[in-house]
Design a protein around this nucleic acid. Structure first.
Lengths: 260, 260
DNA sequence: ACCTGAACACCGTTCAAGT
DNA sequence: ACCTGAACACCGTTCAAGT
């Protein structure tokens, strides 16, 4: 019965609760502390891509050996989870600047801040997308945006759902537009030509929308989808507030949902 | 000047246009054709996870050696791109069943079909999220949904933007909820306890919404965000159709957007 | 001509030997 | 006690030797 000895998956809530203390209470002056290792790893990822981030490269950059790195974390996965958390720390939005704005604008500012941060680290985006970030910075962001919506009169259920819906949209957008492998402008041009070369009888919609599909700027596209969500949220809070009052959602239906 | 000899990135439009022919025109009866290799690779990914998919394991399962595999594709990345396309082929929605539905329902059916397919292959979701799928199945899906919206009177710009917004949402949702590393029910319970243990003075919103944040079923959450998007789309098409008439979007602003 | 065993240059991780 | 060179068991990929 050694089942209780299984290591928690890095990034999972269980992992964070065992790891967070180690991080914040790091004592003494180790030769290379975790913060420096994580910073260097992120810099390498930005420069050469996540595929090329090797513990050997990282150790060499830090002037040590790979075995030395393992004294600061237990696996490469752990390190990458810390890098993801490090990236989220760059999302610099303070509750103060948000609370003076109308809620639509505040949400847009927060969403744009996350998007901009992800765009600065395109090679690292897959790290953020792999799981819901429940580390300190993820929790802090959730708290701020949640508090903002609650403060503007949104019900608790509506707030919880709004947060996740917006988060999914931003992450989904970033990974498909900024992560390496996304179509480059050159690819876009080639894709447009390909669309135009299709048979209009077989692909009427694609050929009709060929230019639109391949020329809309990421910025404009991002804003459009975000506005859809905000329009929907506004409508939900205005026209059907009763649907989202606490307690009105039949819990037993949700829990026993067979497709969940 | 051998710059023209650089290989296109697997999955990019350039790659697809050079690869598609090879796939469809596969001649003779090679010992193990590409289709069988891709099927077996997907089965292995489903069973043991994408980390454990090794070309050696794959070759052994197929009864051959790794060098033999390289006669069918040029790199492991190429194989994974083909696996992603293979997965998209499972999204079985026909234009016929969609066109008899109101557009809201039709979009919901299509979105749910994609979500269900991704859910059947949780370990493979990162493959789909890494890039906008522009292979044959991605194009076909785009054509169907685009044709549907155009047929219901949506303008071309609105259709193009709606498609990508919905796609981003579904992908973003799937990767954060179904891919390995997403919080398990056990993790959810632990996360809820963690939320409740926070200081309500420091984290008022998180503690207030602790139960909601950790108990909403994925199905209900998915539907909520999708409804937000559909509400927004309905509003956009009804109240402000002029904003989305072809030609009304200032192209030069989009092209020169500094943040794009 | 087509196939593939065996090798190559790596990788993440471990541990016994150093200080 | 703390650190780390060197090894271990892999990995994706290549190529010369087989048929």
């Amino acid at each position: 019965m050694a089942a209780s000895e299984v290591q928690p998956v890095p990034g999972s809530p269980a992992w964070w609760s065992s790891r967070a203390l180690t991080l914040t209470h790091q004592r003494g002056r180790p030769q290379t502390d975790v913060g420096t290792i994580v910073d260097t790893a992120l810099k390498l990822i930005d420069d050469v891509g996540i595929q090329a981030l090797t513990l050997r490269t990282l150790a060499e950059t830090l002037g040590s050996g790979t075995a030395t790195l393992y004294r600061r974390f237990d696996s490469k996965d752990e390190l990458l989870t810390l890098v993801a958390e490090r990236i989220l720390s760059e999302v610099r939005v303070t509750p103060e600047e948000l609370e003076s704005l109308p809620w639509r604008e505040a949400v847009a500012v927060a969403a744009n801040a996350l998007r901009d941060t992800l765009r600065r680290h395109p090679h690292a985006i897959p790290l953020l997308a792999a799981q819901v970030p429940v580390g300190p910075n993820g929790l802090r962001a959730r708290e701020w945006l949640g508090g903002l919506l609650l403060g503007h009169g949104f019900s608790v259920p509506l707030t919880a759902r709004a947060f996740t819906a917006i988060g999914h949209y931003v992450i989904g957008f970033a990974i498909q537009h900024y992560s390496p492998g996304s179509p480059s402008p050159e690819d876009q041009r080639q894709l447009r030509d390909h669309y135009h070369s299709l048979d209009p009888a077989a692909y009427p919609a694609t050929t009709a929308a060929a230019d639109e599909l391949t020329s809309v700027s990421p910025h404009e596209e991002f804003r459009f989808g975000l506005d859809l969500l905000l329009d929907g949220l506004e409508q939900a809070s205005r026209e059907r507030p009763d649907r989202f009052k606490p307690g009105r959602i039949p819990r037993h239906c949700i829990e026993s949902d067979p497709s969940a």
